[in-house]
Every structure is written in C-alpha cells, then in structure tokens.
Simulated scan of single mutants.
Amino acid sequence: MSAPLHILVVGAGAIARYHLHELLVQPGVRMTLADADPARARALAAKLGADFPIVDSLAAGLVLRPDAALICTPPYLHAPMAREVLEAGVHAIVEKPPAGSLAELDALIALAKARGRLLLPIVQVRVTSGSYLLRALADAGLTGRFLHGTVETHWRRDMEYYSAPWRGRYATEIGGPWAGLAIHGLDLVLPHLPAIRSVQAHGATLNHPIEVEDCGAALIRCAGGAWFVYTVTTHAHAEQTTGRLVFEHLEVRYATEPYGYAQMPWTVLCADPEQQKRVDACRARIVEPAVPADHEQAFHRQAQQWCEILRGGDARGHDMASYRPTFELLTAIYAASKTGAAVTLPIATEHPQYQRLAP
C-alpha cells in the first residue's frame, strides 16, 4: 500500500487542471486546492468530478501541514510562494518559470537544501517517449557525437490568451514564449548537447500589443563546433513543433504534433544499414511505464514521479538543481537578445542578467 500523501495545489487556473487530473488517480494521494477566488476553485473541482477541500490562500493551506505544495499561480508569484512553502518546512513543486532570475533560483535551491526539503521543477518532457528514446540511444553508445540540430516551437496565441491581466508583462509573466512555451523543448535536448560555450539570440514583439517577446531565435554554440538553433513563435497559422537532431551516427526527427510532440513516435535514421538495425533493436528493448488510455503521458508520468520522490525516492536528476542549466541557458538567451552580443556561459554572479531573467 502506498504511503498517504497530502498535496496542496495552489492556483485553480488552466495548468492546475492538468496536474489535478493526474494526481487524482495516484494511489494514496489527497489534495487541497487553494485559490484567492474560492468560487473558481470549486468550479475546477466540479469539472474534475472531485470534492477537494478549498482554501483561499497559500497560508491557509500550509496550516493544514501538507506534505508538498504544487504552485500553479501566475509566474511572478512562483518564487515568493516557493520560499514561503520551504520556510514552512513543506516540499515545493513549482511551475515554470520557477523564478524571476538565476539569483532567485539559486537562493531557492540553497533554502531547500538548508531546510532539508525537496524543490522540484515541472519538467514533464523528461518522462516522455522522446526522452526515453534519446537516453536509450545514448546509453547504448549508438548516437556518437552531437553535431547540430534545430527545434522549432511554432504555436499560435491570440489576444484572448493575452487578456489574462498577468500575461504579456515582464513584471508578472517574467518572460515571453521562450520562458513559458518553448522551455520544455530546450530542457529535453540540453542533456544531449556538448558543453555550451556561447549564445546569440534575437527576440521581438511583432504581432501583439504586449511587452514580452512574441517570437525569437537563438543560436547555441557548443564545444567542438557543434551548434543548436532554437526558435519560437506565437504567430503560426498551423501549429507545429518540429525537431531534428543530427548526431555522428544517426539522426532523430520529432513527431510534429504541436503539444504532444515528445510523446509521439519519433523517426531515427541511419545512413549505415547495420547501424539502423542496431538502433531498431535498441528501440524494441525500451520499456516505458504504462499510462491509462484517458490520461496524458507526460503529465501522468510526472505525477507518478513526484509521488515516488515525495515518498523517499531518489530526486537526483529530477530536482531544481538539475533544472538550473536549462534556466541558466534561458538567462543567456535573454541577455544575448537584449544586448545583441554573444553571451558566454557560465553566467557569473556579477553578470547583470544574473539578477533578472528578462528583458
């Protein structure tokens, strides 16, 4: 029997619905939902067919001494609430972006360590079929060196999307689609890139009356001359996420479904027929956790993983420290876009962008 877990979900917006839907089917888990608008929280519970206890604030929820708090509020509240949760001695799970700067993220990681609490990011692409495939090929020694690649997140967001009062402004959204939409695609690829040396980037606001960028492109230069291009737009007329990763011994091509791209079967091509046979045999050996038919792979597996970690499982490779390289690279992208100059990594504490993610 699974040890019981009490998870406080903070925020009753759209993203909370995905997490709650998956947590509801995890054995031994009960939830409390906190939102400044209890009527909205009750409406969300009703949509899910659930009867959560409802409270009107994070503070009220923490009084109940949950095992963990899952923060699904607007971005400007992520870090302050994570700090409040950790200081209360409760594990924290934080939506993206988890902080307003690299300095703030480092402070949260240090606080979690000092309090002996878990600080977990939301990185559901790490448990998708695409991620399993990349790791299996690399672990089997089949990829060879990474040479170059591209990932394009071409989605569409209209002014109804930006009508939320916190969206479109740096003070409240922290960053635009680089930080809020395409960041998972970056996190998925980063472990397979050589050491990053520098970043050049251009972000622009071309088609919406907002402050944050609505499109951008980054050129990431890696050790040994390898490179990776990462683009995002909210202007697409046909939504699609595409990726092509070229390694020494094979090439990986994403499925092009815009949101489930990491969950769909990917194509792996080899110029050498014998290498193709080895790759195909490797793919056939991959065993993935089952997902109920009416549940979304990435969110379901992530909820399972959280529960395992909260019950004492190994958090290495899944905690906020493992997410820091992604956030540091995102910081460099914003810095390069702001200055128009190449930005080298690592980002030192004295770098001006260390204190602010964007702009």
Rank of each mutant, 00 (worst) to 15 (best):
C72L: 13
I109G: 09
H148A: 14
H21V: 00
A226G: 06
H295Y: 07
A107N: 08
V343Y: 11
R169S: 02
T153Q: 14
A262T: 15
H21S: 12
L134R: 15
D319W: 08
D280T: 10
H78I: 01
V279H: 06
G180H: 13
R117K: 13
I286M: 11
A59F: 05
A36M: 05
R244Q: 14
P27C: 05
L70Q: 12
G130I: 01
V125Q: 14
P121S: 03
T326E: 07
V199G: 09
L310A: 10
V287Q: 15
P98I: 03
V63P: 09
E104V: 00
D272H: 04
I286D: 12
V252G: 10
Y230F: 04
A34K: 03
L23M: 15
Y76I: 05
A34Q: 04
K96R: 12
S129L: 14
A281E: 13
P80C: 03
D67Q: 13
I220H: 00
D106C: 01
G49M: 07
L70G: 08
G313W: 02
L108A: 08
E213A: 10
E328W: 01
H208W: 01
L5S: 13
G180W: 09
D51N: 12
V123T: 14
I122V: 12
R117Y: 06
D294C: 00
H235K: 14
R135N: 14
A110C: 02
Q200N: 13
E350F: 00
M320W: 06
I54K: 12
H6L: 01
L330I: 05
V232H: 12
A16G: 08
W178R: 09
Y354D: 09
K47D: 04
C307N: 12
A335C: 09
F327W: 11
A164H: 11
P346E: 02
Y132A: 11
H6G: 00
Q297I: 00
A179F: 07
G313K: 14
A179M: 05
A16S: 15
C270L: 04
T331I: 01
A36T: 12
M81Q: 15
P165A: 01
I7V: 11
Q124L: 00
E84P: 10
T143M: 08
A293S: 13
P352L: 01
A60N: 11
A110L: 02
M31Q: 15
G225H: 13
E87V: 02
I196R: 11
T172Y: 05
A14H: 14
V189L: 04
P292M: 00
R169N: 08
G149Y: 07
E213W: 06
G11Y: 03
P177I: 01
F228L: 01
A140F: 09
Y230M: 01
T234D: 13
A201N: 06
D314N: 15
P292R: 04
R197L: 14
P209K: 02
A204K: 07
W166D: 09
A262I: 07
L111Q: 07
